[in-house]
């Protein structure tokens, strides 16, 4: 039978899944929960692709049929994947330091690929096996800075300066706050350092609210 993926007409076998066909052709469809022959439950919905009739379906579970038209990368698909990742992150404690994967995971990769904000530099840092500055009581903005820089400064032996702008997710900041307090770093000092790049931004106010004002209220 013949199917059409991204405008390319290809031969497919009976019973093959869309993901199999795409993999054979070298078309990349991201997956998270799929593990061939072990878990094929189509839970994560990251591998959604668009059919000719406009439906979004998971490529890992959908068997091809003759004449099927499939697109694997459209704005709709990207948007769906992005929101899924956002949701996934909202239910995920981003503490890559304590994770056995040490940040070397598909989730982090996909988040940066789909522009999902909310992952701090701290997730990238352990990828490169760097030591933690905060553990040495140095003021590093890694926990509250958006990732995507591949932790260049840290690999260069410097603390994070927060040049990519802050992460504004409340749960992340609260986690970061815990880390700073645990290592005896003054939150005021952290804010002072953060001012370098984003003193006048809206995000800065937000962070100040979550990091410091909250403390005043509680204290």
């Amino acid at each position: 039978m013949k199917v059409r993926i991204n405008g390319l007409e290809v031969e497919a076998r009976e019973g093959e899944r869309i993901l199999d066909v795409a993999n054979r052709l070298g078309i990349r469809i991201p997956t998270l929960c799929y593990l061939k022959n072990v878990y094929e439950g189509a839970s994560c919905r990251i591998c959604v692709v668009e059919l000719g009739n406009g439906k979004l379906i998971p490529a890992c579970a959908y068997e091809v049929s003759d004449g099927l038209t499939i697109s694997t990368d459209t704005p709709r698909i990207r948007e769906s994947r992005r929101v899924t990742l956002e949701l996934l992150l909202s239910a995920h404690r981003i503490t890559c330091q304590n994770c056995p994967k040490k940040g070397e995971c598909t989730l982090v990769e996909l988040c940066s690929e789909y522009g999902v904000e909310g992952i701090p530099v701290c997730a990238e840092c352990p990828l490169h096996g760097e030591d933690c500055f905060i553990a040495r009581s140095e003021i590093c903005l890694g926990p509250i800075t958006a990732s995507g820089c591949k932790a260049e400064c840290i690999r260069d032996g410097r603390t994070c300066e927060g040049c990519r702008g802050p992460v504004t997710r409340r749960d992340v900041i609260e986690w970061a706050r815990g880390i700073y307090i645990e290592h005896g770093i003054s939150l005021e000092a952290v804010l002072e350092k953060l001012k370098t790049y984003c003193a006048s931004s809206r995000e800065f106010d937000l962070i100040r609210e979550y990091l410091v004002v909250k403390e005043v209220v509680e204290g």
């Binding site: 439950g41 839970s43 949701l87 239910a91």
Partner: peptide
């Protein structure tokens, strides 16, 4: 709780 859109989406 099987798929993310429903499990996390309804919570959000």
């Amino acid at each position: 709780g099987k798929c993310i859109p429903c499990r996390v989406g309804t919570k959000a």
